[in-house]
Structures are given as structure tokens and as C-alpha cells.
């Protein structure tokens, strides 16, 4: 595949310079953060990003006195449960829209999609009051349940479902399979990449969430990684080495996930953002 457009050499140089600079603005801070996380306390303020004698002390302090292990656990558990539930619920809804024709299907679809456009600001006050009434502060339920409906995922999955040929459903029916069996035995295996991409996007959103977990957390034991990091800043900002270790731990899981599934994510962001 050749490039679609060739620019004049002068523009190419400028282009490389600008983009390289931007890339440096991404990579250098990352390097500094990562390097500082492994630095002993006396080296933290030095300019050179990498430690002369790497140490894991910062991570030990993080997981020990800073209880970051608990925050990590909260994040991992709530995000995992939440993403699985979100995907299943969205998939079932997408299946309904794609496979059947029923009264009010179009208006219902619009209603579901419109749910996507309601900004969180508009629902936060009553939801907060609801959480208070249910006494769900500091619970996993508060972090998981209000966010289970993800119309965007339904929209995306429906696109892919509609691309599945009728013949597949037909053959399932002939074999005597009900819609449930057809869904799991035939449809889902064909949805692999789309499902993976949706999972990853939802995971990123869940893991990096700040606003709602901040509202819901009143005591340390219920904090997620992001809230834990924020509280760290309030409590002990000067402790840079350990802070950077915290930043590292808060970012690594998603970065790792990304590099493992790189292609799917890029395709999803790209195909969903514009074509829709």
C-alpha cells in the first residue's frame, strides 16, 4: 500500500519536526515518571530521568503504607465486573434490535441512543441522592450499577450484527436452535473483534473514571486507583518517588492491555467515531 499523497520535501521536514516534537512531549514525561518511580529518595530531584541504582522501595511503600494494593483491587474488580455486565447487556439489546422487527423498534432505538447524549452533569444530583437513600456510598454497587447501560456499545454491536448474513440465522433455526442458543453459538463467535474492542474501550473508560468514583468514595477503603492517586496528592505530595510509582501503577494495566490488543482498539475508535 503506497501513500496516497506525497508532500513537497520542505513540508515533509516540517511535518517530521512537529510530529516528532509532539511525540517527545508524550514520551519524555513517561520516561521521567517511570524512571523516577524506581529512584531512591535522594535522587528524585535530579534531572537525569533514570536512577543510578534502581530500587523497588517506592513500590513497596505504595503497596504497604499507602494501601495502594487495596485501591488496585477495587479498580480491577469493579472494572472487570462492570465491563462484563455492560457488554452482555449491550449485546442483548443490540441483538434485539438487529434480529427482530417489532412494534416501536425504531422509536425505541432512538430512545436508547438518546440515552447516550445525556451528559452526566444532568443526572448527577438525583443519582447522588439515590445513592444516599440506598446507602450505597463506598460500595462496589455504586461504582458498577448506575453505569451498566452503555447505549454506545449497543449501537456499535448492532452495526456488526446487521452485517451477519441471514443465512446464519436460518441454519440455526433449521437446527432447532432458539434465539438464545443462536446468539451464543453462532453470533458471538462472529463478533470476536467487535466484542474485544468494545471490552477494551469500556475498560479504559472504567479504569480512568474520576468524577463518579470521587463522589461515591467517602472513606479510604473504597477508593479506586484514580481516587487513591488524587488523595495521595492531597496527603503527601512531596513524596515524589512513591507518587510516581503510583502514577506508573495507575497507568500500566491499560497501557498493557492496549499493546496486547492494539489493532482492535484503533479500528474501533476509528470506525465508530466517524461512520456512525
Amino acid at each position: 500500500m503506497t501513500a496516497p499523497l506525497t508532500l513537497a520535501p520542505a513540508w515533509r521536514v516540517v511535518g517530521h519536526a512537529v510530529v516528532a516534537l509532539l511525540c517527545l512531549s508524550v514520551l519524555v514525561p513517561m520516561l521521567v515518571v517511570f524512571g523516577t518511580a524506581f529512584k531512591p529518595p535522594n535522587e528524585v530531584y535530579q534531572l537525569q530521568p533514570w536512577p543510578s541504582a534502581p530500587t523497588l522501595d517506592n513500590f513497596a511503600a505504595l503497596l504497604g503504607e499507602k494501601r495502594f494494593g487495596l485501591y488496585l483491587w477495587n479498580s480491577v474488580a469493579t472494572v472487570t465486573i462492570r465491563v462484563v455486565a455492560q457488554v452482555v447487556i449491550a449485546l442483548l439489546a443490540a441483538y434485539a434490535f438487529a434480529r427482530w422487527d417489532f412494534p416501536f423498534r425504531e422509536p425505541l432505538f432512538v430512545l436508547v441512543l438518546a440515552g447516550m447524549m445525556v451528559p452526566p452533569q444532568l443526572t448527577m444530583i438525583p443519582l447522588y441522592m439515590l445513592m444516599a437513600d440506598l446507602d450505597w456510598f463506598d460500595t462496589w454497587a455504586a461504582l458498577i450499577i448506575p453505569h451498566l447501560a452503555m447505549p454506545y456499545a449497543t449501537f456499535l454491536l448492532r452495526q456488526h450484527l446487521m452485517a451477519i448474513p441471514k443465512e446464519l440465522y436460518e441454519s440455526a433455526r433449521i437446527d432447532g436452535a432458539g434465539s438464545w442458543r443462536a446468539l451464543w453459538d453462532i453470533v458471538v463467535p462472529n463478533l470476536g473483534p467487535a466484542l474485544a474492542a468494545v471490552c477494551i474501550v469500556l475498560s479504559i473508560d472504567g479504569w480512568n473514571e474520576y468524577f463518579w468514583p470521587m463522589l461515591m468514595s467517602t472513606e479510604p477503603s473504597s477508593r479506586t486507583v484514580q481516587i487513591g492517586l488524587r488523595e495521595f496528592v492531597e496527603e503527601d505530595f512531596g513524596n515524589y518517588g512513591v507518587l510516581m510509582a503510583g502514577v506508573t501503577l495507575a497507568s500500566l494495566p491499560i497501557l498493557g492491555l492496549f499493546f496486547a490488543f492494539q489493532r482492535h482498539i484503533v479500528e474501533t475508535f476509528v470506525s465508530s467515531g466517524v461512520k456512525g
Partner: peptide
């Protein structure tokens, strides 16, 4: 380039 530029999308605003 594209991948490097995309990395900030993956980390949180908190970070």
C-alpha cells in the same frame, strides 16, 4: 507516530 500520539488517550486525566 500515530501510536505514540495515541498514548495519552489511554492514561487518565488524574495521572
Amino acid at each position: 507516530y500515530r501510536t505514540v500520539l495515541f498514548l495519552p488517550t489511554l492514561i487518565s486525566f488524574v495521572v
